[in-house]
Protein backbone atom coordinates (compact mmCIF):
# COMPACT_ATOMS: atom_id res chain seq x y z
CA UNK A 1 0.00 0.00 0.00
CA UNK A 2 1.21 3.42 -0.82
CA UNK A 3 2.62 5.22 2.20
CA UNK A 4 1.38 8.59 3.36
CA UNK A 5 2.99 11.19 5.48
CA UNK A 6 1.10 11.85 8.70
CA UNK A 7 2.08 15.10 10.30
CA UNK A 8 0.44 17.38 12.84
CA UNK A 9 0.07 21.01 12.11
CA UNK A 10 -0.87 23.81 14.43
CA UNK A 11 -4.55 23.14 13.68
CA UNK A 12 -4.99 19.48 12.74
CA UNK A 13 -3.47 16.16 11.88
CA UNK A 14 -2.71 15.95 8.22
CA UNK A 15 -2.40 12.75 6.18
CA UNK A 16 -0.80 13.68 2.90
CA UNK A 17 0.59 11.80 -0.05
CA UNK A 18 4.34 12.46 -0.42
CA UNK A 19 4.04 13.42 -4.08
CA UNK A 20 1.57 16.09 -3.01
CA UNK A 21 4.24 17.96 -1.03
CA UNK A 22 6.30 20.44 -3.04
CA UNK A 23 8.66 21.56 -0.32
CA UNK A 24 8.95 22.14 3.44
CA UNK A 25 10.78 25.19 4.64
CA UNK A 26 12.17 25.95 8.05
CA UNK A 27 10.47 28.68 9.99
CA UNK A 28 12.22 28.93 13.34
CA UNK A 29 10.80 26.27 15.64
CA UNK A 30 8.17 25.51 13.02
CA UNK A 31 8.14 24.45 9.43
CA UNK A 32 6.07 25.50 6.46
CA UNK A 33 4.71 22.79 4.18
CA UNK A 34 3.71 23.87 0.69
CA UNK A 35 1.36 21.57 -1.23
CA UNK A 36 1.01 21.02 -4.93
CA UNK A 37 -2.34 22.83 -4.95
CA UNK A 38 -0.67 25.89 -3.47
CA UNK A 39 -2.02 25.46 0.04
CA UNK A 40 0.45 26.29 2.79
CA UNK A 41 0.41 24.56 6.18
CA UNK A 42 2.29 25.47 9.30
CA UNK A 43 3.85 22.38 10.84
CA UNK A 44 4.63 22.52 14.55
CA UNK A 45 7.99 20.74 14.21
CA UNK A 46 11.44 21.92 13.41
CA UNK A 47 12.67 20.98 9.97
CA UNK A 48 15.06 18.38 11.37
CA UNK A 49 12.15 16.69 13.14
CA UNK A 50 10.10 16.76 9.94
CA UNK A 51 13.02 15.18 8.15
CA UNK A 52 13.11 12.33 10.68
CA UNK A 53 9.37 11.83 10.41
CA UNK A 54 9.66 11.53 6.66
CA UNK A 55 12.43 8.97 7.00
CA UNK A 56 10.59 6.99 9.67
CA UNK A 57 7.21 6.98 8.00
CA UNK A 58 8.13 6.68 4.34
CA UNK A 59 11.30 4.69 4.59
CA UNK A 60 12.93 4.29 1.20
CA UNK A 61 10.00 5.99 -0.45
CA UNK A 62 11.10 9.15 1.30
CA UNK A 63 13.97 9.41 -1.12
CA UNK A 64 11.88 11.71 -3.28
CA UNK A 65 12.75 14.37 -0.73
CA UNK A 66 16.09 16.09 -0.53
CA UNK A 67 17.31 18.09 2.42
CA UNK A 68 19.10 21.16 1.20
CA UNK A 69 21.03 22.94 3.89
CA UNK A 70 19.46 23.88 7.18
CA UNK A 71 16.22 25.39 5.94
CA UNK A 72 14.71 23.39 3.11
CA UNK A 73 13.35 19.97 2.21
CA UNK A 74 12.22 19.73 -1.39
CA UNK A 75 10.40 17.13 -3.44
CA UNK A 76 12.78 16.43 -6.30
CA UNK A 77 9.89 15.54 -8.58
CA UNK A 78 9.27 19.23 -8.75
CA UNK A 79 12.74 20.04 -9.94
CA UNK A 80 12.63 20.86 -13.62
Amino acid sequence: MKKHLVISTSLDLVRIAPEYVVYIASDGNYSTLVQRDGEVRMVSYQLGQVEKMISDQLGAEGNIFIRIGKSLIINRNFIY
Partner: peptide
Protein backbone atom coordinates in the same frame (compact mmCIF):
# COMPACT_ATOMS: atom_id res chain seq x y z
CA UNK B 1 13.35 13.52 17.42
CA UNK B 2 16.72 15.09 17.91
CA UNK B 3 18.86 12.33 16.51
CA UNK B 4 18.72 13.58 12.94
CA UNK B 5 22.18 14.21 11.56
CA UNK B 6 23.25 17.77 11.58
CA UNK B 7 23.48 19.41 8.22
CA UNK B 8 25.27 22.52 7.06
CA UNK B 9 23.94 25.08 4.67
CA UNK B 10 26.32 23.93 1.93
CA UNK B 11 25.22 20.29 2.14
CA UNK B 12 22.38 18.31 0.68
CA UNK B 13 21.22 14.77 1.36
CA UNK B 14 18.56 12.43 0.15
CA UNK B 15 15.98 11.44 2.74
CA UNK B 16 14.70 7.92 3.30
CA UNK B 17 18.23 6.52 3.70
CA UNK B 18 19.31 5.78 7.23
CA UNK B 19 22.80 6.46 8.50
Amino acid sequence: MNDVQEIRDDEIRVLGITA
